[in-house]
């Protein structure tokens, strides 16, 4: 059994240590917000936080997450109050939405590490996340807006 903390809840799973964290989250814990897009760390749809760092869960063996803190999209906020979620709502960012969990989880690390990102900073942090609908211009705009809101104490 492998123990892990996901969104501050404790779980024990009977999984092979090599099983990617993505499939443990989705198929064993029922946390389907984290998405499968490529299976080889190319698209970022499966991005989660492992001890606060953005990782591609599709290539992260669950053993690496044993006894560690995992945060998924379901744990970003419980009530859509994360500045990024508010900004996503305000800018009508998403289209099909399938990649957006990953976009948000990547953006959340960026915003924490760099409260005032430039366009170049956003390019560097977000170029690992593919969006087939092409929401990039709005993702960029929303990250800037979220940074602004964060500065102003979360107000829109």
């Amino acid at each position: 059994m492998i123990k892990l903390q996901v969104n501050s809840k404790s779980y024990s799973v009977d999984a092979s240590p090599q099983m990617p964290l993505l499939w443990v989250l989705r198929d064993m814990l029922g946390l389907t917000g984290t998405k499968f897009g490529c299976g080889m760390a190319q698209c970022g749809a499966c991005t989660v936080h492992l001890n606060g760092e953005a990782v591609r869960s599709c290539v992260t063996p669950v053993a690496r997450a044993a006894n560690q803190q995992v945060t998924t999209i379901e744990g970003l906020s419980t009530d859509l109050t994360h500045p990024l979620q508010k900004a996503w709502l305000a800018e009508d960012v998403l289209q099909c939405g399938y990649c957006q969990s990953g976009q948000l989880m990547s953006a959340a690390v960026l915003l924490r590490e760099n409260p005032n990102p430039t366009d170049d900073d956003i390019d560097k942090a977000m170029s690992g996340n593919i969006c087939r609908c092409g929401t990039y211009p709005r993702v960029r705009k929303a990250i800037h807006l979220a940074a602004q809101m964060q500065k102003e104490g979360g107000k829109l």
Binding site: G33, T72, I73, L80, W88, D92, L94, G97
Partner: peptide, 8 residues
Amino acid sequence: DTPEKING
């Protein structure tokens, strides 16, 4: 459809 697509 935004709310449910940004909280998983």
